[in-house]
Amino acid sequence: MTDIWAGLEAAFWLIVTLDSDLVEITLRSLQVSVTALVFASLIALPFGTWLAIRRFRYRRTAIAVLNALMGLPPVVVGLIVYLLLSRSGPFGVFGLLFTPTAMIIAQVIIITPLIASITHQAMRELWAEYHDLLISLNTTKRQRIMTLIWDGRRALLTAALAGFGRAIGEVGAIMIVGGNIDHATRVLTTAIALETGKGDFALALGLGFVLIALALAVNILIHSLSRTEQEGRW
């Protein structure tokens, strides 16, 4: 219990004094995870929607694979991305290993299946509701996808937030591909792992509370923004 109090106290002082290292790694955490979220959403939202409305022979298999990919162990993703981006790997010439870009790539791979799968679930329901109308109006496939994405944006936001939550709390993959380099690739989660390793539980826990507060703040911010737009209809 004393450790937890010490952690709360450490978090309090870190935030109150606006510790410059804390601000830096917090912003980097946000930068990496939000960028990963944008790219993952650009892939997963249309793909999940497409999967909900398109009938093709291996659809069930594709959905099963997608759901399985949701459980991808981040460490394995990290290792594979590491081997691909290593100077001795196929994409070594780009020199991306141990940069925020590498961390973003790993996170995109981890959260895309999650977002696509939640999107698919939500879009399938909406599609069942809209199906007859959109068919009757002789819509093109593109128009259908755009309509479903627009009208299902609340569910898609939930999917995206789930992806963000997974990304910002992830440590295994970004530790391997980012290297936890101070002032370059250190983020909240890798800093927590580092401080735990040093036995400084109070600081580790303090950073942990900052991470939780950050995730909460982002969720509340996004929900309140969308609520203003939607006039409290949600």
């Binding site: 909406l126 509701e129 007859d132 109308l133 009757s136 309509t147 009208d151």
Partner: peptide, 17 residues
């Protein structure tokens, strides 16, 4: 012809708009 037809369903389908 499809463009110039319209269909009203028994239970109306409302877009969530």
């Amino acid at each position: 012809a499809r463009q110039e037809q319209a269909y009203v369903f028994q239970s109306p389908i409302m877009l969530r708009r």
